[in-house]
Design a protein around this nucleic acid. Structure first.
Length: 587
RNA sequence: GCGGCCGUAGCUCAGUUGGAUAGAGUACCUGACUACGAAUCAGGUGGUCGGUGGUUCAAGUCCUCCCGGCCGCACCA
């Protein structure tokens, strides 16, 4: 695919320029304007080094390549066998052109088809790389809080995290996906206290999570009036930490209900964590962290608490390790978790898919580990994302101001159902497809934009199924599959004839770029690069589809175009799978 | 106050280590279904890339300062 092509071209060019293969490889870019060619080599930097004019440099290079080309091949006419040898000599280059300070390279149409066959049609996992083979990457994502329902924010973390996991796999890494459940902390003291106090007033048989949420909100409302409630909650949490039986039973009940609820949603989304290790899992590992910090003389007492201070120039408040009452805290558990993931799980990279409001916390945790002398802390990454907001402010569980994931899914399904009744009322498996398309709309909408930006929650946008949306990509897949059904026989995994029209060429070249897109998507931890790419594939496919008849053309053309359809279907399906979006056969 | 993220078309947003003419969707206007699926496609209107100064052959992208929005700033997670 594209990266192989770039390697080939770099190999060819290195004997002609004063740059090594890797430098050329990194400079080679796909021009934004398709008419400029397939690949382009900017020569400005090099011209500066050699104190020459970049335009001259490009022209000389062009002349040199053209000369070599004509010497080796002469002016004889080329048959198909000669064409192959031409590819060998010229590395698939059709022509080069010096424009401005660029060397624009146009590749041969047959070269693309060869690459589509070898890189797409004969592959199970398309565009995958071996780069991370032998390395493990731990991805902490989703991590909802027990006793609270999943809202859009968790949905965002879950979608992004799942896509990052799949992207890591595409680069050859072994992925350790971890659900770091929020199952510990003083809010469980509050909840347990509130449950004991008012539990009998609520119905826990139908929707237990809703009942717990109501109790939690009530606690905070009443705490406004009676500040001693907070103390009572703290006291109750202390009992939980000490192993008080009654409190612990309430806690276990909460976990049981929550997990059942989460599992149902994960199943709908097709998400599976290899490890579910909540915060409570690290309770017996916290003392070890404290001891290690003491051994390294990093722990200091301040205002009755145990903390780690940072250098003044780092401009960060100290990292709290133990509260003044001796209880553990957030950072302590994350330190223990990081150490566990590195030492026990043998992870090389540690990724945290957590909202940007926790940036300082992770900066502190990473820095503490560095101060402890752990080199591997350099391979820890906080993958931030912007928060969902309402027009009047942040989502807040305490104030009951939340949009639940299930509400969105249901609204989305209503809209899709309406569309199906209008467009395709005789569809098979209606409910399943409705869910698949609805999920596609919601997930794609979340992943298509840069994750670092806040999103103002808007119903119409969240469930949109028109224009640049998940269903648009799914629809393109459905059209491909529909063609394949109508074609009525197996599609050949090779091209019978050269597809040379601009639409076909453009699509072929686009399909070959998936490997590059997967690589940069993972390197930047940005699933939106992939989502945007899929939209471009769809757009190129549509141009091809509308410009050319496929079925009913002469046999060789029909067969070759169907091969192109198959390749498109495979690329889109592979891309959507990585984003966590299902592809129905019909919709 | 200190720190981080963000500011691109009426609206919502893309824009990969700085590269050629800043792109989509939506909305609005026009056109294409006896058609391989119109959940689609083609064309049009729409831009001081928040402002300023700088670095560079080249700046939406990097640096300075200013303006605006959001988030965070030790005993919640």
């Amino acid at each position: 695919m594209l990266n192989d092509i770039k390697k080939t071209i770099s190999l060819y060019l290195k004997s002609k320029i004063n740059l090594d293969e890797a430098q050329i490889y990194n400079l080679l870019e796909v021009p934004k304007v398709y008419e400029h060619g397939h690949l382009s080599l900017p020569l400005f930097q090099m011209a500066k080094l050699e104190k020459t004019n970049p335009m001259e440099l490009a022209k000389n290079l062009q002349a040199q390549i053209e000369k070599e080309y004509s010497e080796k091949l002469g002016s004889e006419k080329l048959g198909s066998e000669e064409l192959q040898s031409k590819n060998r000599i010229n590395y698939g280059i059709e022509k080069v052109q010096a424009v401005g300070g660029y060397l624009n390279i146009t590749l041969q149409s047959s070269f693309f088809q060869e690459n589509v066959v070898s890189g797409i049609l004969s592959k199970k996992q398309i565009g995958f790389s071996q780069e991370g083979v032998g390395q493990k990457v731990a991805v902490d994502f989703s991590s909802p809080n027990v006793a609270k329902p999943m809202h859009v924010g968790h949905l965002r973390a879950t979608m992004i995290g799942n896509a990052i996991c799949n992207l890591a796999e595409s680069q050859g890494y072994e992925v350790l996906s971890i659900n770091h459940l929020g199952d510990w902390g003083s809010q469980f003291g509050k909840l347990a206290w509130a449950y004991k106090q008012w539990g009998s007033e609520y119905d826990f048989s139908e929707r237990p999570i809703d009942a717990f949420l109501k109790i939690y909100i009530r606690f905070h409302e009443e705490a406004e009036k009676d500040p001693t409630l907070v103390q009572k909650g703290t006291e109750q949490f202390r009992r939980l930490e000490e192993g008080d039986l009654e409190t612990r039973q309430i806690w276990e009940l909460i976990i049981k209900y929550s997990m059942a609820d989460f599992s149902r949603l994960y199943k709908i989304l097709g998400i599976h964590h290899k490890f579910v290790l909540g915060e409570s899992f690290y309770n017996d590992k916290l003392e070890d962290v404290v001891q290690r910090l003491k051994d390294k003389n990093l722990l200091q007492e301040s205002e009755g608490a145990q903390v780690v201070f940072f250098d003044e120039k780092e401009n960060m408040p100290p990292c709290l390790i133990k509260k003044s009452d001796g209880a553990s805290i957030y950072a302590t558990r994350d330190l223990a978790a990081a150490i566990y993931r590195h030492e026990e799980m043998k992870a090389h990279k540690l990724l945290y898919v957590v909202g940007q409001d926790q940036t300082l916390h992770f900066k502190q945790v990473f820095r503490v580990l560095e101060k402890m002398g752990y080199e591997w802390a350099k391979e820890m990454f906080h993958i931030t994302f912007g928060l969902y907001r309402f027009k009047d402010g942040k989502l807040s569980t305490r104030q009951g101001k939340i949009v639940l994931f299930e509400d969105i899914l249901n609204q989305s399904m209503d809209l899709v159902r309406e569309m199906i009744e209008e467009k395709n009322p005789n569809l098979n498996h209606k409910e399943l497809v409705t869910q698949q398309v609805a999920i596609g709309a919601v997930i794609f909408n979340d992943l298509v934009n840069d994750r670092s930006k806040n999103v103002e929650f808007d119903w119409d946008r969240a469930i949109s199924i028109e224009g640049d949306s998940g269903p648009y990509v799914q629809y393109t897949v459905v059209r491909c599959r529909s063609l394949m059904r109508k074609f009525g026989k197996p599609v050949k995994e090779s091209f019978e004839t050269l597809l040379q029209s601009p639409e076909e060429q453009k699509l072929l070249f686009r399909l070959l770029q998936l490997d590059h897109v997967l690589k940069i998507s993972f390197n930047h931890f940005k699933p939106n690069f992939l989502a945007q790419y899929l939209l471009e594939v769809c757009s190129d496919f549509s141009h091809f589809y509308h410009a050319h008849r496929i079925l009913g053309e002469s046999e060789a053309i029909e067969s070759s175009r169907m091969t192109l359809v198959l390749a498109t279907e495979k690329i889109l399906t592979q891309g959507l799978q990585i984003l966590g979006i299902p592809t129905p056969d019909e919709m």
